[in-house]
Every structure is written in C-alpha cells, then in structure tokens.
Design a protein around this nucleic acid. Structure first.
Lengths: 139, 139
DNA sequence: ATTTTAACTTGCATTATGAAAGTTATTCTA
DNA sequence: TAGAATAACTTTCATAATGCAAGTTAAAAT
C-alpha cells in the first residue's frame, strides 16, 4: 500500500488529496451549478474525459468529500452530494476565484467580476449563505 | 502553441496555472520558511525531484509569480522572490491549511494547530502582517 | 590546484491524462 | 413490448507528466 501523504504539512497534505486539475472543478460545479449526476459533470465547459471523471468521483467519495446515492424509484442515476468536508472547500475556492480576478486580467478581462463581487466585501456572510443553501438542496 | 486555459472560469484558470502538487509548496517555502534559492527548495520535506523543481521555477517565473535575481558579488546563487501576484497566493494557502486542520485529523492529529491558530481568529490582520514581512525581506 | 557547492540537464522507467470507442443496465417511446 | 435512448461507466491506446539516478557546468571555497 502506497503512502498517500508526502509529509505531515497541512498544505502538502491537502494537495496530495485535491491538488490536481479536475477535483476542485467537480466541487465547483456541485456548489455553484447544482450539478449532481455523472452526465451533468460530464458536460462542463472544460470537457473532462469520462475515465477521469469516473476516477475522480471514486476518489472524492473515498476521501469522504462527496457522497454517492440514489433517488427513490430510480435505479439508474447516481446522485452525488457534498459532505461537510466537501462543503468546507468553499473558502478555498472563493480565494482562488478572487486571486484570478485580481491577477489574471489579461485572460479573464472582467469576466469574473460579477461572481467575485458577490462575496468580495462580505466573504463570511456569503459563505454562511452558501452553507445554508447547501442544506436546502439536500432537504 | 497550445492553449493554456481550458475555459474562462476563474477557478479553472487558476488551476491551469498552479493546480499541481508542487507549485504551491515552493510558494509555501518562500512565504513561511524564507527560502529563496534552488538548493533550499531542493531540501524540502517532500523531496521534490530536481528536474521538477527546475521546471516549476521556470514556469512560476514565466507566469509572473516569482522573480529570479542575483545578489551583488555572487554570480552563482539564484535568488527567487515573490511578485505581488505570488504574494497574493497567501490567502489561498491559509484556507487550504485551515481546511486540512479541520478535516484531516486522522492524518495530521493536532500538528497543524500551532500554525493555524496564528491566523484562524484574525485572518485579515495576519495576512497584512505577512505582506509587511514580505516587504521587509526584500528591503 | 583541487574540492565543494549551486544550479541545473539528461536518460529512462513509471504513472497519469486524454480521446475515442465499447459495454451494461435502466428507462423511455412508438 | 420491442427498439431506441440514456446514464454511468470501462477499455484501449497514444501522449504527456512525474520520479529517480546520474551526469554536467560554472563559480566559489580551501
């Protein structure tokens, strides 16, 4: 069994789990687009390959970041949802978005501003509102 | 010339640049351990391979996240420093550390607490203090 | 003058990613 | 109720990234 963590540093350890180019995009789509099925994730702008999507969903589930479930009366569609551990990735994602808005202007122009302005001045309350929304989605 | 960005999403775009397992660790070492030379980076706990280190330093420089310079009277040692764009990665790194402290307890035990407690309750002032420290290091 | 140090580069094996096509079970539709 | 479509994968294979070990070059120290 291979060693999962390179060190006991909290930053390095997080990167060992979600430090790739796809995992956080799946989480992003769950948080901001309400996506919850394989085929919804499969339709992202970034065009994730299906084998990678399959692999990442397994890993995220194994890591306890998402749950896999079904709706009653439907044996076909898998419904993925965020665990608490997954929901708590929100602050990281917001800081990433803000960094991009500040520093990738040549590429993004002002395209990220409408999104970033929603939380820029009031991050903590935005986060709490999102957490509340996550609860509603489940209920 | 290959397309650098998968989409115009700010999250995806940041991951296109620094969404790998090593870049943020180099930044971490610059921020919290005052590392600034190739051989210092080479001695990290996580044992980065020298070819990867070399490659990441080039990329980070090319992306405008770090600068490469020399000290007067020394033609040998390269001195790497954070640009503003690089310094602004600090909030992301802090959120990552906090997430790990909250969610990777089996692995980290309480090892991250001494670090995380420094900013947990006062993030904005910690960040400002760090920014001030970055200035001093350069001057 | 020789050794050591700093910063790489090279070669090669292993692993991850990406694109396309194929598979299976379930559900919808004529 | 038979065929078509959908959801969720898996497989194959080519390409790219990573990791390890050893080698290189110039500068600095002894």
């Amino acid at each position: 069994m291979k060693q999962k963590f390179r060190s006991n540093c909290p930053i390095s350890s997080a990167l060992d789990l979600i430090g790739d180019k796809w995992s956080l995009l799946i989480i992003r789509d769950m948080m901001f687009s309400g996506k919850k099925t394989y085929s919804e994730f499969s339709n992202s702008n970034e065009k994730i390959a299906t084998n990678i999507l399959s692999n990442r969903l397994s890993m995220l589930e194994e890591l306890g970041i998402i749950n896999k479930g079904k709706l009653e009366g439907n044996k076909k569609t898998n419904i993925y949802s965020l665990t608490q551990k997954g929901k708590e990735l929100l602050p990281i994602i917001l800081e990433i978005a803000q960094w991009s808005d500040n520093n990738l202007n040549d590429h993004l122009k002002d395209g990220a501003k409408p999104f970033v302005n929603k939380f820029k001045s009031n991050k903590e309350s935005f986060i709490q509102n999102m957490y509340a929304r996550f609860e509603k989605q489940e209920g």
